[in-house]
Amino acid sequence: MHFIPEALDDYVVAHTEDEPELLQQLTRETFQKILQPRMLSGHYQGRLLSMISKIVNPKSILEIGTYTGYSALCLAEGLQEHGVLHTIDINEELVDFQRKYFDMSPYGAQIHQHLGDATEIIPELDLTYDLVFIDADKPNYVNYFHLIVERLNKGGILLSDNVLWSGKVIQQVKEDDLSTLALLEYNKLLKEDKRIETVLLPIRDGLTISRKL
């Protein structure tokens, strides 16, 4: 999804840090073998995730929605030396694919995979986080927020992906469009919750940055 002309978007990408070779390889294999490859964060957003993580320099990261592991590897670039990243996904078929690329990176030992329903797994982890990235099933975004907001350390960052949902958030919404309805509720929640401050960035499919007060 592009919210600026494609030629200008190409210019933006061309003047952004190069995509690491390992992530280029992961992208190629995802497009060759995995359904819905457009779910990848991709070069530009991946470099943004990496930059934010490096600025935060987190000791602990939680990612909800692993897919093939691209965004986890980007976020891991900012981890402290003994930091950890916990990533949750419900798709059993992707576990080995993810692990292969995690172990090919310098961060393999720091990345912990969890398979199953994130609403059940998050309470079991009993951890707090400096950085959280939500990029999973949209109808559960509000539930994920309520599960993690008190586990987000003071000054910690919550990143929420796909919050513009291909522009559907400003269109007439059908009653059965549960994902768009959920995102409208979620975006309102992030704006109004007094525990955080929020900026919504109109890049790719929309990325919100929220900071715990």
Rank of each mutant, 00 (worst) to 15 (best):
V142T: 10
L207G: 00
T30V: 03
C74K: 06
N153K: 14
I61G: 02
D205W: 04
L201H: 05
V169N: 10
H114F: 08
N187I: 00
D103T: 05
D103H: 07
T27V: 06
I90D: 06
I111E: 01
Y70C: 03
Q45D: 08
D161T: 10
A109P: 02
Y11W: 09
D103I: 01
P139R: 04
L189C: 05
E175P: 05
G42L: 02
L125Y: 08
H43V: 09
V149A: 12
I203M: 07
L190E: 08
G78I: 03
P202N: 12
K138Q: 06
N162K: 06
Y44P: 02
V169P: 01
N91W: 05
L127D: 09
L131D: 01
H146L: 01
L131V: 03
V13K: 13
R195K: 11
G78Y: 04
K59Q: 14
N140S: 15
I122G: 02
P58N: 14
R151L: 07
K33R: 15
M1T: 12
K54W: 11
Y186C: 03
D130L: 01
L40P: 03
L73A: 03
H114D: 01
V173C: 15
L200N: 11
D9V: 03
L94T: 05
K59L: 10
Y67V: 10
E192V: 00
G155K: 05
R28K: 12
D193L: 06
Y129G: 00
A136S: 11
T128W: 04
H2P: 06
D89T: 12
A118R: 06
L131T: 02
M39Q: 15
V13L: 08
Y141T: 11
L178D: 15
Q32P: 10
V132C: 06
G69C: 03
E185M: 05
P123Y: 11
H114Y: 11
A76P: 04
